[in-house]
Amino acid sequence: MATSTVSRVRRQLPTSPWLFAVPGLVVTGVFILYPFVSTVVNAFTDRRTLIPGRFVGLANFRELLHDDMFWIGLRNSALYVLGVVPALVLLPLLLALLVQKNIPGIAFFRSAFYTPVVASIVVVGLIWVWLLDERGLVNSLLETIGVGRVGFLSDQWLLLLSAMAVTVWKGLGYYMIIYLAALAHVPRELHEAAAVDGAGAVRRFLTVTVPALRSTMVLVAALSSVAAFKVFSEVYLMAGPTGGPAGEDTTLVMLVQRTGTGLTGRVGYASAISLVVFVVTVALMLLVLRADRREDA
């Protein structure tokens, strides 16, 4: 009896796990694989929102090379990575070190630093727009102390910087939690040994904490660089749908949205831009992982 049951289970084994996986596979297929394949196919067509496309080969990619707005988008997305990633690798680590200690009231600070993470990006974006407005709180303070009004939301570079600041501010808590988890695994004995050898706080940070957290820092760099390259909400909310003055703050994902949506959207061309975003994102991940591997070697 037992033998026949076992053999029946064995016969059915190749099928059963797949049956359990079907719901997940369907969801993945419908919401990830199909849109992805569809985007790749569309990138080689002149499809519009309501008009089916014809195959146009590499025409969309050739057009990209001569599209000023594409280069502006690529520049801004790249600048976003350069501006945001170092800040998001270092600042949450410092915050994590600050709140790591179990002292009275520290839970309040941990919660406070994490609050922006759970806040809606739209709400956060609007609050910052009000703060940085020409007549907002920040400009009123600057005017009071004699600096005068600063065009945070009207100058293309200040706008981009302001959006980066919001991204960093909103992301600090999230990465701080990742670092806190990693810090809990750094052996206390290492710090004690370094202290006995006469290492100060800074030296211990550089020679004990940083090497112990290197793989976590790589993870944070990889996650934040992908998120930064694909930035949309912060810039859209602060710079407006046009992407700042003359569209100079447009990022690549904003360009995809602007080009490919609406009744006259150029779905084919927007798909080509999406494909570029995908390739660059994968390249960024590979670059970070490669840098990590080289360090290991």
């Binding site: 407005d133 020409e134 065009g151 939301l153 009207s154 706008l159 710079a239 407006g240 749908p241 046009t242 700042g244 003055p245 003359a246």
Partner: peptide, 11 residues
């Protein structure tokens, strides 16, 4: 307005 370049009807 200096922010006219990025204005929306709402703003």
């Amino acid at each position: 307005d200096p922010q006219a370049l990025t204005a929306t009807p709402e703003s």
